[in-house]
Design a protein around this nucleic acid. Structure first.
Length: 704
DNA sequence: GAGCACTGC
């Protein structure tokens, strides 16, 4: 132990190129890992942060020959940033190992180690180890259903149970039956290891009947667990003696208690959202003025995903002399972002979680108690640099009795329309019987199937339609947006033919607005287009008004996109002057380019479509939007609220919408978010009632 | 008249 500790210290002085990877805890398990992977189809690696599994295991596999004969070792990550940083680091390490070829070091390393994320494919023919986002591997499965290029597929951070991870696990279990030589590695936190084993042990029929067994191989031959110790420092966990009514107030108080009574080290405070964070930062700043001017000072910094990028980076800067940083953050710092030098963690015990209600079709975003796994993860953030302390703003009894072990997987609380579409495109005809590690509730399945049917992506036998449904699945868009971008008509179903005199869902080419629809689809795919600098709300509002279009947000977003790419010349200065988010708009440009490539592949008529786009009117664009968003329709009530068509729910235009204080009758909207006690619709556009009846006759006939 | 956890293709 002593020697391990010493080498950890020296590590910080050494350039990363010479990082002595042999001292990582995983190196002791090298042979055991290789033995298991050689002899068992599935290996579950239980490893804490800092065990080195992500960086070392793919290298061991490479050295052991798993990348011979042109095969590739894949390692998936739930986040883009992880895929790129890990790949870069492993390329450096391998460069060192090829010591005699010093001049080729970086080159050789980068060529053998690559990464693939959306918009960035850093791989080549000679790539042997490939880090990638889990969503990217799923995309590849559309082209190569057996993922035949890969000899080993490691699903890293599987315990996070992202949508893509869960789908991949089911797909991999299926692939493994056809490719006995494929090796699957699942990396997991302690709590869920057994669940992964049970999943891979069970046959498909067992999954349906709810019981696993060990039929295949006649025993425990399929999946094995191996545990790696992590490398982190001990963290003292402290609880409240009495529960608190107001954790925000308690948090501020705890910050000052730590500041006055504890030693050096920064503080990480977990809260739930932007509002709470900004209020807390101000409260800490205000109360800091009471500190003696020569005593150590506090520097409170907000951190959440919606914060402009430069302000996010501020949390990594070393604080000025005589200052202690207090980073007040959302869940973003639980797994996505690591900040060095944090010694104290304050955990509110809450997180905002999204859940989809299949009866109303509404996504709610509400604050709920975290899971035990999350609490452990948050506490661990205090022990990355040296021994730390975690102050939990709840009682030990609440931890033991009120908190669930792990959070409900995303697949059990999401709109499944995109999942179903993806599975169908992967050739899974019977999605209800698909081998999910945890099957989603049937109401979610039914709702998803209904939506896809009404969009024309599935026929009355729930088969994927061709070309429309198949093409929709290929595009990186949600199904409703994919419908309006897709250049294909849906084939009328038998009942439609009878009931609607042959009127069908049209497409953007026929409406003559393909170019505009591409821009709108790209804009609704990015977040936070408008920025409001703190204390500058007024000028930001009037800047926004310049782009506003009376008919709604979609045409307003179209205006912004067109201004950015023409007048604004895609410049960051122009964005600043107009209170627009340069990064978001640049991303919209990339998304649009990508969507355009899909369209070009789908149809040779794009040029023709472009010439017709000059004649596009606001009305034709709004009509086209209606063909995809008819299920998201609502009607304004006399009091200014809206009543939704499906679920009959009271909705309010989001304050960011141009419809916030405008009169309208019928509208369609991109998304609904329920927060606290109000339900908001975002990206709202006015339409006419007869368009809804015209473009979605069956949907509205049923509703009436 | 007042507000948006986190990811990913």
């Amino acid at each position: 132990m002593a020697s391990a500790d010493r080498s950890t210290e020296t590590e910080e002085y050494l350039p990363s190129l010479y990082r002595p990877s042999t001292i990582l805890p995983i190196s002791r398990h090298r042979n055991a890992l290789l033995y298991l992977i050689e002899n068992y189809p599935v290996t579950i690696v239980v490893g804490q942060t800092g065990s080195g599994k992500t960086t070392q295991l793919p290298q061991y596999l490479h050295e052991a020959g798993w990348s011979r004969d042109g095969k590739i070792i894949a390692c998936t990550q739930p986040r883009r940033v992880a895929a790129t940083t890990v790949a870069t680091r492993v390329a450096e390490e391998m460069g060192v190992r090829l010591g005699e070829e010093l001049t080729l070091r970086g080159f050789r390393g980068v060529m053998q180690v690559g990464y693939s994320i959306r918009f960035e494919d850093m791989t080549s023919m000679s790539t042997r180890i490939k880090y990638m986002t889990d969503g990217m591997l799923l995309r590849e499965a559309l082209m190569d259903p057996l993922l035949s290029r890969y000899s080993v597929i490691m699903i890293d951070e599987a315990h996070e149970r992202s949508l893509s991870t869960d789908i991949l696990l089911g797909i991999l279990k299926k692939i493994r039956r056809k490719r006995k030589e494929l090796r699957i590695v699942v990396s997991s936190a302690t709590l869920q290891a057994e669940e992964f084993v049970r999943f891979f042990m069970g046959t498909e029929d067992d999954a349906q009947s709810g019981k696993g067994n060990e039929k295949e191989g006649g025993g425990n031959e399929l999946a094995k667990i191996i545990s790696l110790e992590g490398r982190c420092y001990p963290v003292d966990v402290l609880y409240l003696e009495e529960p608190t009514e107001n954790y925000v107030e308690k948090a501020v108080q705890t910050v000052f208690d730590i500041h006055l009574k504890e030693g050096e080290g920064d503080i990480l405070l977990f809260l739930t959202g932007r509002d709470e964070i900004e209020n807390t930062v101000s409260a800490i700043r205000e109360r800091s003025q009471d500190l003696h001017h020569r005593a150590p000072q506090l520097l409170p910094l907000p951190l959440y995903a919606g914060l402009p990028h430069d302000q996010q980076l501020a949390v990594f800067d070393p604080p000025p002399e005589n200052h202690r940083k207090v980073i007040v953050c959302t869940n973003i710092a639980e797994a996505s972002i690591t900040i060095e030098n944090v010694v104290f963690v304050i955990d509110s015990g809450f997180v905002k979680l999204r859940a989809f209600n299949p009866h109303t079709g509404i996504d709610s975003l509400t604050s709920v108690p975290i899971s035990k796994a999350s609490a452990t993860q948050r506490a661990g953030r205090a022990g990355r640099t040296r021994a730390g302390k975690c102050f939990r703003l709840y009682t030990e009894a609440a931890f033991g009795e009120d908190m669930v072990e792990t959070v409900i997987p995303e697949i059990q609380r999401s709109n499944l329309a995109p999942v179903i579409l993806q599975l169908k495109a992967l050739g899974i005809d019977n999605v209800v019987r698909f081998d999910f590690i945890t099957p989603p509730p049937s109401e979610l399945m039914v709702r998803g199937l209904e939506l896809l049917y009404s969009l024309g992506a599935l026929d009355e036998y729930a088969r994927l339609t061709k070309p429309l449904g198949a093409r929709m699945a290929e595009m990186p868009l949600d199904p409703m947006t994919a419908k309006i971008v897709s250049p294909f008509r849906s084939q009328p179903t038998k009942t439609q033919k009878v009931k609607t005199n042959g009127i069908q869902l049209l497409n953007s080419i026929e409406f003559g607005c393909t170019e505009q629809i591409l821009n709108i689809a790209a804009m609704t795919s990015v977040q936070n287009v408008f920025i409001s600098h703190e204390g500058e709300k007024k000028p930001a509002e009037s800047a926004k008004r310049k782009f506003a279009v009376e008919e709604g947000d979609h045409l307003t977003l179209l205006n912004v996109y067109q201004a950015f790419t023409t007048k604004g010349q895609k410049s960051s200065k122009w964005c600043r002057d107009n209170y627009l988010n340069f990064k978001a708009l640049s991303r919209a440009v990339s998304v649009r380019a990508q969507l355009k490539k899909y369209l070009e592949r789908f149809t040779a008529d794009v040029d023709q479509a472009r010439s017709r786009s000059d004649t596009a009117t606001g009305e034709s664009i709004r009509r086209c939007l209606t063909t995809g968003y008819f299920a998201h329709a609502a009607r304004m009530q006399p009091d200014g609220s809206f009543r939704s068509v499906s679920g009959n729910v009271i909705l309010w235009a989001h304050p960011s919408s141009v419809m916030f204080n405008r009169k309208a009758d019928w509208v369609i909207f991109h998304e609904v978010v329920e927060t606290g006690n109000k339900t908001f619709i975002r990206d709202v556009t006015s339409v006419q009632k007869n368009w809804l009846l015209e473009y979605a006759p069956e949907f509205y006939r049923v509703r009436e």
